[in-house]
Structures are given as C-alpha cells and as structure tokens.
Design a protein around this nucleic acid. Structure first.
Lengths: 136, 136
DNA sequence: AGAACAGTTGAACAGATGTGCAAGTGTTCT
DNA sequence: AGAACACTTGCACATCTGTTCAACTGTTCT
C-alpha cells in the first residue's frame, strides 16, 4: 500500500503551508466533472456555437458535419453537467448555454492557453548548472 | 460517412445564429487540454494544496497519502499544461501554481458546481404533456 | 392512423488515460 | 567515490470515454 515515506523535508522548509485542503470532496467531484465535460474539442466547439445563440441538434450537426447521434451524445455530456439546457420547440429541441457564466470558464482557459505555449513542458527552469544539450 | 442530413430546420427558425465559429482550432486544443488536466480530482487536490504555497513532491505525497511516483505523474500532467511550475531547491523540487489565474478557473467551476446539483440531468423541462412515470 | 422528421438511447469497439512497480537520473552527505 | 535521498520515467494493466450503428420515442403533417 503506497504509504508515502515521510521524508526529512518538512513543510516549514518551504513555507508554513500544506495543512489539509480547504475544499470539500463533493465540490471537487463536481468541478472535476465539469472540467471533464469541457476537455474535448468537439464539445467546446458546440459551446462556441451555442454562445452565438440557441440551436437545435440538426443545426449543430450540420455546422459540425456530424450526424445527429454524435451531436446528441455530446450534448448529453454537456447537459449532465448543466452546461447547456434544452427546450422543445415543436419538432426540434433547442439547446442553449445554461448561463453566460460558462463562457467565463472557457475564456479563462483560452486566456491561459494564449499566455503560455504549453505542451511538452520544456525549457523553463533556471537550469542551475546548465548541463549540455538534453537528448530527448 | 456520417454526413449530416440537411434538415428542414433552418437557423432562421430559431435565431439568426450559427455561422462559423469565431474561435481558432489551436486555442480550442489548448483549452481542452487544460480542462483535461483539471478533470481529475487528485490533480485538483494537488492544485488546492499548492494554492496554499509551494510544496515539494514528498510533501504532496505525504499530504495525499500516495507514493512519490503517483504524485510525480500527476504533476507531470499539470506541468505539461503549465498549470504548475517547478524549481529545484537542493535535494527537493518545489512545485507551485504557475499563476493565480488558474485558481480563477477552478473557483469558477466550483461556483458553477454549487449553483446546480448537476449529475444525471433529470427534471428540468417544463414537461409539456407530463406523461406518466417513465419506466427506466 | 400512418409516414416522415427530430432526437435519444443502448451496445460494441477502439483509443486514451490513471495507477503502480521497477529501474534510472540528479543532489547532497560522509 | 559511494551511499542515501528525492524524483522522474518506462511499462503493463485495468478502466474510462468517444464514436458509430441500430433501434426506439416523441412530434407534426396528410
């Protein structure tokens, strides 16, 4: 059982920090679930589409060049996290963002994305000794 | 080839919307990747821990009751998205949030999570006909 | 009622991802 | 130099998730 070996490295060495988390497990679960729903480009695209106004499934499908089933499944995920809501309108069902709040989330991520090129976490440390070229 | 069948449902029926997305593919990719990194509770917990100040891997491992390897892998994911940064301090390596910006993201999600109970997207439609009990 | 349209849902598959173990790298201490 | 500590990385395995096809539900039109 992976119990961590208590190291000689005490919190005080760095700062006074690392007492137990202030966030409750439930909130964490929800947040993680929301992030997971947002973690796929196709779903993000749907939100982008919906940010311009409500659309029915067929419309989204046409815009994305996908079939209804696929779009419906994606919407299902988004709906499960209350990111979008739906409303019947005769034969079709219109989807729309649950609230503008959600766009903040996406814009925030987008903003962070632009700040750093992200990716394979390369050169960033001061590199104290600056060894010669790394192979990988 | 799942080409969508163009329906009789034209955009104008709902609103004037659904022209092509205003967001570029690259940004979407990044955003999705960031969200994916945030989509697991264990990683969220690490961020929560780091929000209280820098910690070394051993410290995080001890706090979470996990082994170094596991924590290291999680940090790797977070680092790949530039959510955390590291800095050597002698024998240990201190990790810290890349910037406070990130907490906004999490708090935003947390906020949204509290707003709605989320989950299995149940009763929400006005239920026009309110048919009797659904079997499933 | 029956046909056609609009979506949803279930199941099967493939690809992606987290976890944990073992082995490897970089630092400090003796 | 060698030993011990602090991490990181490669791998294998089990799990999860997205996509797609087929079948089913709900609406509107004739």
């Amino acid at each position: 059982m992976a119990r961590a070996t208590k190291p000689d490295c005490k919190p005080a060495d760095h700062r006074g920090a690392a007492r137990h988390l202030p966030v409750n497990p439930e909130a964490m679960d929800r947040a993680a679930a929301i992030f997971r729903a947002l973690s796929e480009v196709p779903r993000l695209r749907i939100l982008a589409l919906l940010s311009q106004g409500p659309s029915c499934v067929s419309e989204l499908a046409a815009a994305e060049g996908e079939d209804l089933s696929t779009i419906s499944q994606r919407l299902r995920v988004l709906r499960a996290e209350r990111l979008v809501k739906r409303q019947r309108a005769g034969k079709h069902i219109n989807y729309s963002l649950a609230d503008q709040h959600i766009l903040d989330l996406v814009f925030n991520a987008l903003a962070h994305a632009s700040e750093a090129p992200a990716a394979a976490a390369a050169a960033s440390e001061p590199s104290p000794s600056a060894k010669k070229g790394k192979s990988r």
